[in-house]
Write a protein that binds this DNA or RNA. Structure first.
Lengths: 255, 255
DNA sequence: AAGTGGTCTAGACCACTAT
DNA sequence: TAGTGGTCTAGACCACTTT
């Protein structure tokens, strides 16, 4: 790795109108590259939008859009009346997303879901509170195991409001494809969900099902889903092996 | 909760030019509210941009911006040549971010960092690999404990490349303020970082320091930070108590 | 061919910050 | 007052999808 080369190598700094890539994206990439190369350092002020317009021969709206892109990505901070400045790296901007989980199954790997149990049970106090129903009211109880290459990855328990007039039950029970949970074409009933992630020690049952000897740590992902009347209709949690699934992310400038 | 009221109550559906809120945000909120109310359901097509222009008396660019906002938020999917459609809820769009962690300490609560240990140690094989240095090369080793209201929250271990010509060491060692880790004004040396989150079983030392009886599960957050020459300069991990810190997020339409 | 979203222009006016 | 970013217009042209 060569040191002290921050300001020497200039990226190709022209907008090519014949390219497939739109001008606003080209400019955003040029600026990001210059920041990555050290031409502009954290705290430094970028050229003004008017300067960028002249320099690259594009209109104010287009420059604006480039700057907005970089600002959305947390690379830059635009301050009205002052200027646009390169942001220092911040840990708080890091975010882990479940897309990685979704990808695990879309990757054509040999994955499947096994329905361990499904029956109607009376809501206990906790379930009743979560689903906003009376204690003792009927719910559909589901237990499923998700595996990949015949190794268990996660275990799912959920309680659904039991309402024969709503088609959600069958939709939720359709577990033949993994789409069902992540890109369910039939989940037009669901408006929003709340998710919480914690860690947990596996209990005996979970340890056996997930085939890990106790004691073992795992992710605990709880969910509540609501319909378009803002009524909760599903509550449950996933438990998944951290050795089979970890989350990664990046912060700062990634060119 | 009243049922079957999806299409009746219309939100105030005019753009008010005297408002502080810009027109593009107002339109985005109007559309989001209509989706939340069920006027448009997942899979439904929104009015075309030309229609929205006429309907709300604003220019194409402004309508565009509203749609882009909703598309960025995952509420809507704009397809060239076809139209703009309401997206069904997708689990994969959920993301957990460390901002919550950062907030924990900015909230003016009684939080502090205790430096447990700091000294120069020779890099072992793993550290050498992570920091891209020779085995046996000197590194700064740090152990810190973060507490809140005199309860331990997380434990941090890190190895820094030992290079007297770089000021990073002092910057990293400046742990008197929590800013140091999250919004370090002196971290202009750092270009980017890679983060991984897993779960772990506490070992004896961690259990004692974090004051949780074994066996116990916790989050394990590993990090590598790079400078502007793309050289790794810091590697380490946080271990934090899941009972003191959990991550929550929302998916779908949140009005 | 008609309708859709995607990009871009060449300005305008405003709000804010610095001097 | 000059310079900055923030919003907005009223079109234009293009790429794509559908009929």
């Amino acid at each position: 790795m060569v040191q002290g080369t921050q300001n020497l190598p200039q990226s190709e700094d022209r907008i090519d109108r014949d390219l497939y890539e739109p001008a606003y994206a080209q400019l955003a990439n040029i600026l990001r590259k210059q920041i990555a190369e050290g031409t502009y350092r954290p705290g430094d002020q970028l050229p003004s939008e008017a300067q960028l317009c002249r320099r690259y021969g594009i209109s104010p709206m287009t420059v604006r859009r480039s700057i907005n892109l970089l600002a959305d990505q947390g690379v830059v901070d635009a301050q009205q009346g002052r200027g646009t400045f390169v942001k220092p790296l911040e840990l708080g901007t890091a975010s882990f997303d479940l897309q990685e989980l979704q990808d695990l199954f879309s990757n054509g790997t040999d994955a499947n879901i096994k329905l361990l149990d499904t029956r109607v049970v009376s809501a206990d106090a906790r379930t009743a509170r979560r689903l906003n129903i009376a204690i003792g009211a009927p719910t559909i109880y589901i237990r499923r195991l998700f595996s990949r290459e015949s190794k268990p990855v996660f275990y799912h328990r959920a309680y659904l409001v039991y309402d024969p007039t709503r088609p959600i039950v069958e939709a939720e029970l359709d577990v033949t494809s993994l789409q069902g949970l992540f890109a369910n074409a039939d989940n037009t009933i669901l408006k929003r969900g709340e998710l919480t992630i914690e860690t947990t020690l596996l209990n005996e049952e979970e340890s056996k099902i997930l085939e890990i000897p106790m004691p073992a740590a795992a992710f605990y992902l709880a969910h509540v889903f609501y319909d378009f009347n803002d009524c909760p209709i599903s509550w449950g949690w996933f438990i998944f092996r951290s050795d089979q699934l970890r989350f990664t992310t990046q912060v700062g400038i990634n060119d």
